[in-house]
């Protein structure tokens, strides 16, 4: 398809709109101190915590999101449309609202929190809370991405597999999931990236303590108070990590196909 030439103008403006702020930020970095700024104990702790919690929430997203996408894409039942809209809610909800909702669910005085408290599992102010907050906001990314892939892939291969004698679980494992692997990978990356950037729900629900709940975005926000240079350097670090993750997955995907 040939694109009308005028389309390039708003397209370029859009690209500039995204890239320019990143360039502007990179330009403000004190390069001479860059590595000492991002190498401080608190920065390293925040980065390490962010990577760990984002990885954990991505795993959780896959474990919960794949079955959700399957149910949404491969079955029909009453109220499915409403359910889909509800599942997508965290996409459009301000993360702070998500954080408040989680607080009233898993908090000490929350819906489930009191029961969990009795069982000796305190979620508030723990790394678990960070993972819960990140999973809450990033789960829809995986579900949406995977449901789209499942619908695009269609069911014809699954039908053939069934007539060849494969049980539903075998079909899922050997046919469906391998076929939608690119979509699953894309969804997982989106979820990871979203989890990495998660701020509002975390600060509302999990609190902020170095090494326990203070992820990189929280650290950046805090550093702004006293050390704007460190905040800028950490912001750039976050951008680099995000770009690396996206690039890594694109690379492995293109070589796999």
């Amino acid at each position: 398809m040939s694109v009308p030439r005028w389309v390039y103008v708003p397209a370029a403006a859009g690209a500039l709109f995204i890239v320019l702020p990143l360039v502007a930020m990179a330009a403000r970095v004190e390069w001479s101190q860059f590595f000492s700024l991002i190498g401080s104990d608190s920065s390293r702790a925040a980065l390490w915590l962010s990577l760990r919690t984002s990885a954990a929430s991505t795993v959780l997203c896959v474990v919960l999101g794949v079955p959700m996408a399957l149910v949404l894409a491969r079955t029909t039942f009453r109220g499915q449309g409403a359910l889909r809209s509800l599942v997508l809610l965290p996409l459009v909800l301000p993360p702070v609202v998500g954080g408040i909702a989680l607080l009233y669910t898993f908090g000490r005085k929350g819906l489930l929190g009191e029961t969990l408290d009795v069982l000796g599992w305190q979620i508030a102010f723990s790394t678990t809370a960070v993972v819960i907050a990140q999973t809450f906001v990033s789960l829809p990314f995986l579900v949406v991405s995977l449901e789209g892939s499942l619908r695009t892939a269609g069911q014809q291969y699954e039908v053939v597999a069934a007539t060849l004698g494969a049980r539903p679980t075998t079909v899922l494992r050997r046919v469906t999931l391998p076929l939608v692997l690119p979509g699953l990978a894309a969804g997982a990356v989106l979820s990871f990236a979203r989890a990495l950037g998660e701020f509002g729900a975390t600060i509302t629900f999990a609190g902020s303590l170095e090494g326990v709940t203070r992820t990189l975005p929280l650290e950046i926000y805090l550093q702004r108070e006293t050390d704007p240079d460190a905040a800028v350097a950490l912001s750039l670090l976050l951008v680099v990590v995000a770009v690396l993750v996206i690039g890594l997955v694109r690379g492995t995907r293109s070589s796999a196909l």
């Binding site: 508030a124 600060i203 509302t204 999990a206 609190g207 303590l209 929280l218 805090l222």
Partner: peptide, 11 residues
């Protein structure tokens, strides 16, 4: 030994 070091008084 705080459980959390919040960003603001409101938090």
């Amino acid at each position: 030994k705080p459980a959390s070091e919040e960003q603001s008084v409101t938090d």
